[in-house]
Lab assay of single mutants.
Amino acid sequence: DETGKFLVLALYDYQEKSPREVTAKKGDILTLLNSTNKDWWKVEVNGRQGFVPAAYVKFL
């Protein structure tokens, strides 16, 4: 159920650099879980949760 969740689009490829991050490919649609940090947003992609740089994604 996606009610109340926001989707964001990956603008660039991002390769995770730590276990707390997730890899995303340009064009991926990610479920935004938390955007309270202006630099790192928590997302879910391909069943995995983790952080990506906020500058790499935008709201749909």
Rank of each mutant, 00 (worst) to 15 (best):
W40N: 00
Q15K: 11
K42D: 02
G27S: 03
Y12M: 11
D28C: 11
V43I: 05
D13G: 06
T3W: 12
A54L: 05
Y14N: 01
P53M: 09
I29Q: 03
P53T: 07
L60F: 11
F59T: 08
F51G: 01
N34Y: 08
L9W: 05
P19M: 09
V45A: 08
Q15M: 13
Y12P: 00
T23Q: 03
F6T: 13
V57R: 00
T31P: 03
Y56D: 00
E16S: 15
G50D: 00
P53E: 04
L60N: 06
T3Q: 13
K26Q: 09
I29V: 11
F6W: 14
W41Y: 09
D28A: 08
N37H: 10
G50Y: 06
E16R: 12
K26D: 02
F59P: 11
T36L: 09
L30D: 00
E21I: 06
K17C: 12
L32P: 01
Q15H: 13
F51S: 01
E2N: 14
V45R: 07
Q49F: 07
L11C: 12
P53G: 06
T3D: 11
N34S: 12
A54M: 05
Q15L: 13
D39P: 02
E16T: 07
L11Y: 04
A24D: 02
V52Y: 11
F51A: 01
K58T: 13
D39H: 15
G4F: 13
F59L: 15
V45S: 08
T36R: 11
E16Q: 13
F6H: 11
G50I: 07
G4L: 12
T36M: 10
L9H: 02
K25H: 10
R48T: 05
D28W: 11
V52D: 01
I29L: 09
L33P: 00
V52S: 02
F6N: 09
L9K: 06
T23N: 04
E2S: 14
T3P: 13
E21Y: 08
G27C: 09
T36A: 12
L9G: 00
K25L: 09
D13S: 08
K58P: 01
N37F: 07
L32T: 00
F51L: 07
P53Q: 05
Y12N: 06
A54V: 07
A55L: 10
E44H: 03
T31D: 02
Q15C: 14
V8K: 00
V43A: 00
N34V: 09
G4E: 11
A24K: 03
L60C: 12
Y56P: 00
D1F: 14
E21W: 09
R48I: 08
K26M: 09
L33A: 02
E16C: 14
A10E: 01
T36E: 13
Y56W: 08
R48G: 04
F6I: 15
L7K: 11
A54P: 03
K38I: 08
D1R: 12
T3G: 13
F59D: 05
L33V: 09
K17S: 10
G47I: 06
L11N: 01
G50M: 05
L7Y: 15
E21T: 08
F59C: 15
Y56A: 13
W40Q: 00
I29E: 01
V22M: 06
E16F: 06
W40G: 00
Q15E: 14
E2K: 14
N37T: 05
T36F: 11
V57Y: 03
E44N: 03
G47E: 03
V52L: 13
S35Y: 10
D13Q: 04
D39K: 13
K42I: 13
V43Y: 02
K26R: 10
G27A: 03
Y14E: 01
L30R: 01
Q15R: 09
Y14T: 01
K25N: 09
K25T: 07
F59M: 14
V52R: 02
E44Q: 08
W41F: 09
P53A: 07
K42Q: 11
Y12K: 11
L32N: 00
L11H: 01
K17Q: 13
V45Q: 05
D1C: 15
A54Q: 03
G4K: 14
E21L: 07
W41P: 00
P19H: 09
W40F: 05
S18H: 11
L32Q: 00
N46K: 08
G4V: 13
D28H: 04
I29A: 02
T31A: 07
G4R: 14
L33K: 03
I29N: 01
R48H: 06
V8N: 01
E44M: 09
E2C: 15
L7N: 04
Q15Y: 15
N46E: 07
Q15P: 06
T31I: 15
F59H: 08
L60P: 02
V57I: 09
A24G: 03
F6V: 15
K26N: 04
E21D: 05
P19K: 09
L7Q: 10
E2L: 14
D39E: 11
P53W: 13
P19S: 12
L60W: 11
N37S: 09
G27Q: 02
T23D: 03
V8F: 08
D1P: 14
N46W: 07
A55R: 14
T3M: 12
D1A: 13
V52C: 06
L11M: 10
G47K: 03
Y56K: 04
K17L: 08
D28M: 11
E44Y: 08
F6Q: 12
T31M: 12
A54S: 13
E21G: 13
V45D: 00
Y56Q: 03
E21K: 04
V45Y: 07
A10V: 15
F6C: 15
K26L: 07
G27E: 03
E2R: 14
G50E: 01
L32M: 03
E16L: 06
D13H: 06
G4N: 11
D1M: 13
V43N: 00
V52T: 01
G50L: 05
Q15F: 15
L32H: 01
D28S: 07
D28L: 08
E2Y: 14
E44R: 06
K5T: 11
N46S: 07
K17V: 07
N37M: 07
L30W: 04
T3C: 15
N46D: 11
Q49H: 07
V57M: 12
W40L: 02
A10H: 02
P19W: 14
S18D: 10
Y12R: 12
G47N: 05
V43M: 01
S18K: 06
K38D: 09
T23H: 04
N34E: 13
D28N: 06
G50H: 03
A54E: 02
T31G: 04
V43K: 00
I29M: 05
Q49Y: 07
K25P: 02
D28V: 06
E16P: 15
V22L: 11
L33W: 05
L60A: 05
F59V: 13
G27D: 04
L9T: 06
K42F: 15
Q49N: 05
A10T: 09
V43R: 00
A10C: 15
A10I: 14
E16I: 06
N37Y: 07
W41E: 00
V22G: 03
D39F: 15
T23R: 04
S35I: 11
E2T: 14
L9M: 14
K38Y: 06
T3A: 12
L7V: 08
F51Y: 14
F59I: 15
T31E: 07
K17Y: 04
K17D: 04
D28F: 08
W40I: 01
L9V: 15
L30K: 00
S35T: 12
F51M: 06
L30Q: 02
L33H: 02
Y14R: 00
N46C: 09
Y14G: 02
S35A: 14
P19N: 10
T3I: 12
A54G: 02
A54H: 02
L7S: 06
L30V: 03
S35N: 12
L60K: 04
V22D: 03
T36Y: 10
F51T: 02
G4M: 13
K58M: 14
K38L: 08
V43G: 02
F6P: 10
R20V: 10
I29G: 01
A54I: 06
N37G: 09
A55E: 09
Y56M: 15
E44I: 06
L7W: 13
L9F: 10
L32V: 13
K42L: 15
Y14Q: 01
L11K: 04
L60R: 02
E2D: 12
V57A: 00
K58Y: 10
F51C: 10
K5L: 12
Q15T: 14
Q49V: 15
W41C: 05
P19I: 10
K25R: 12
Y56C: 15
Y56R: 02
L9N: 00
K5Q: 11
D39N: 12
E21M: 06
V45H: 10
G47V: 04
